[in-house]
């Protein structure tokens, strides 16, 4: 037994989970897939006094459903369920695509979409996709339900806009621009990303591109949008020079960290190279 002692409670409803979080304000943790929380407990990086198991709430939070023309993914939907969902494959193909880059079979059998977003790993693929697609996080707290845009949700490494007594209940993906490319560079197969990158856009009949979003992971203290680069490309026809200049602009919105996976310098080198390649691939309709 490696973790420090804690009390274990099973939540019977979202309201119950919120009440428990409120009661133990700041000293309790929700347990979803456990694929990030339990390693941190085992390493004693976290020592909550109460662990609130929400796995029993799958009836309420384990569904992938169409809401109007948006796709609402319950916080307890596991990666393996994303892999199997035809609704996700059809409506949110980028989400389906990136799941293959997360962990391994056992991790994907347990890890949840809500856990991944709440954990807010700066390299996390799901967090990256919520930014790239402009997703909305729905949270429930003692004062009711509120929606938080992905852009306002990730505040820093492992830090989100969720209050300590709020629970994430759904991640909602509105319809997004149809074309995307995703790239990831890791140290080894399915390891956490050194750089991850999603570009999304809509090709118009007149040859211009609209609704460009470029999301970067692993190169800042949180997943970020390369807003300056996207602005440079919006509503224009792309040629090599424009794409190259936009790719350089991507560096304006990130401040890559130095860590055991890679140096900041290496990450800074990777960003424009791969943004350029993904934009060219998007424009050319090839990999």
């Amino acid at each position: 037994m490696k973790p420090a002692p804690f009390e274990y409670v099973k939540a019977v409803s979202v309201a119950d989970a919120v009440a428990l979080l409120t009661e133990h304000r700041g000293d309790a943790r929700l347990l979803a897939g456990g694929q990030s929380l339990v390693p941190m407990l085992n390493m004693r990086l976290l020592r909550p006094s109460v662990v609130i198991d929400v796995n029993g709430l799958a009836d309420a939070l384990g569904e992938i459903a169409l809401q109007g023309d948006a796709v609402a993914v319950g916080a307890l939907v596991r990666y393996a369920e994303i892999e199997r969902s035809s609704l996700v494959a059809e409506r949110v193909p980028l989400l389906r695509h990136v799941v293959a880059y997360i962990g391994d079979r056992q991790v994907r059998n347990r890890g949840t979409v809500g856990g991944a977003v709440a954990h807010a790993d700066p390299t996390g693929e799901i967090a990256l996709v919520t930014l790239a697609l402009g997703a909305i996080m729905r949270a429930e707290g003692p004062d009711g339900v509120r929606d938080i845009h992905a852009e306002a949700f990730f505040l820093g490494p492992y830090t989100t806009a969720l209050a300590p007594d709020e629970m994430l209940t759904h991640v909602i993906f509105p319809p997004a621009a149809p074309a995307f490319r995703f790239f990831e560079r890791g140290r080894k197969h399915n390891d956490f990303a050194v750089l991850s990158l999603a570009v999304v856009g809509r090709p118009e009949p007149d040859g211009t591109w609209r609704d460009i979003r470029i999301a970067l992971g692993g190169v800042h203290d949180r997943p970020v949008l390369a807003a300056a680069a996207a602005r440079a490309l919006e509503g224009r026809r792309w040629d090599d020079a424009l794409v190259r200049d936009a790719a350089l602009l991507a560096l304006e919105d990130c401040d890559p960290p130095d860590d055991f996976r890679a140096s900041a310098e290496y990450r800074r080198h990777l960003v424009p190279v791969h943004v350029r390649r993904m934009l060219s691939a998007l424009a050319g309709g090839h990999e």
Partner: peptide
């Protein structure tokens, strides 16, 4: 029936 890592599952689960 599903493959999982036993070290990431709490006994009460």
């Amino acid at each position: 029936g599903t493959a999982v890592k036993g070290c990431l599952l709490l006994a009460p689960q």
